[in-house]
Nucleic acid binder design. Structure first.
Lengths: 198, 198
DNA sequence: TTGAAAAACGGAGGCACCCTCCGTATAATC
DNA sequence: GATTATACGGAGGGTGCCTCCGTTTTTCAA
């Protein structure tokens, strides 16, 4: 048994082709550009054009619109998850929660397309989005659990609830002044979830 | 002066043709059906088919997708506005606010397409949606103002803010258990907006 | 180096939808 | 009944979605 590359049990080891991975990168870059400009409903053919590739190539790499989204915004979602860990280590429970929520708003404001990524994470029907969804739910879940454990926050609102509120509030992020509005609302929400110390 | 129908200053008075108003009704009924089944992005050609009319007729009556939405859901939006008035007369300030918010959730849950109507009212870029938007903002605005005047609610969150939160939270209304989740969130939000009596 | 064979490419093609335009049909008025 | 404003319908040109398959490129073993 044992050849060189093709291992015994069908678990082939052939590396991905050069052109394939190069094109994958091009598609991701193009998608970022096009989605930023045209919103999440932008044409996939436009993405392929922007990448200088055929539409067939795009579909082979990313069979669904969602899978493309997922790939484009995976990194940003991961950053948010990391931020949660940092805050957990560095700030008191309620403040950490509040800051993380605020950071999300800033993300949406800054990184064009982040709203789409969040939305996707929260509503995505596909299996692929489970990754993002899980990551974020867990991130906020840890912050929440810590605050609950400290007796500072009500226990009847879960991570998924909070994520829903966050994403929803950011959903209408085109109106002027949306950012301040969402920050006020989030603060009020956290206040409402608070158990005052006595 | 005064003729019979055609008034002097170009403000013609010719009644709309029978077939025209009949077809308008058919289109509205069809739109309600199709949007309920297929969501707000459903095909306009499907609406025309459902109504047994040509696509041209649809476009003459409703030049944009939004104008059709507007017409379909105008009544439901008006009902919500009326409810606000009723509650204003019948319930104490904070309770009225809370109940109105809850009623909205029920609307979304019950009347398919109501979510789309709310969304449209809140984000619609068109002039036509101003009507719905105004109506709802004013409705919740009155409830809010009363509660603020009674010293029961913080003054830094406006009607538009609250509407944003409401619509946003209902936005992801497909997930299982969304309804309970939104109710919890709204309660917490109102709690957070409260000024405890002392 | 070379020559299969695996893997990837590209875009034509079929379908649906969007919206406009204008010849034809029909209701309202005289 | 004739006239004319009004409405109807759907063909047509454009775009996007996604699939399928003949062609091209890369890899790997001999």
């Amino acid at each position: 048994m044992s050849g060189h590359a093709p291992e015994h049990a069908g678990v082939t080891a052939r590396r991905p082709r050069r052109d394939a991975s190069r094109n994958r990168d091009r598609l991701l870059a193009a998608a970022k550009t096009v989605f930023s400009a045209g919103g999440p409903a932008a044409s996939l053919e436009a993405v392929a054009r922007e990448a200088g590739l055929g539409i067939g190539t795009l579909y082979r790499h990313f069979p669904t619109r969602e899978s493309l989204f997922e790939a484009v915004y995976r990194r940003e979602v991961e950053q948010l998850a990391e931020l949660a860990e940092t805050l957990e280590a560095e700030a008191p429970p309620v403040a950490a929660l509040r800051r993380w929520l605020h950071a999300n708003v800033e993300f949406v404001a800054t990184k064009k397309g982040m709203a789409a990524a969040l939305e996707l994470a929260a509503r995505g029907p596909s299996d692929l989005t489970a990754y993002s969804s899980d990551l974020l739910t867990r991130a906020v879940g840890r912050l929440l659990a810590r605050a609950v454990a400290a007796g500072a926050i009500r226990a009847d609102i879960g991570a998924a609830d909070l994520l829903r509120a966050l994403v929803g509030m950011c959903y209408l992020h085109d109106e002027p002044g949306w950012q301040a509005s969402v920050l006020r609302l989030l603060d009020a929400l956290v206040d409402g979830m608070r158990i005052p110390p006595r």
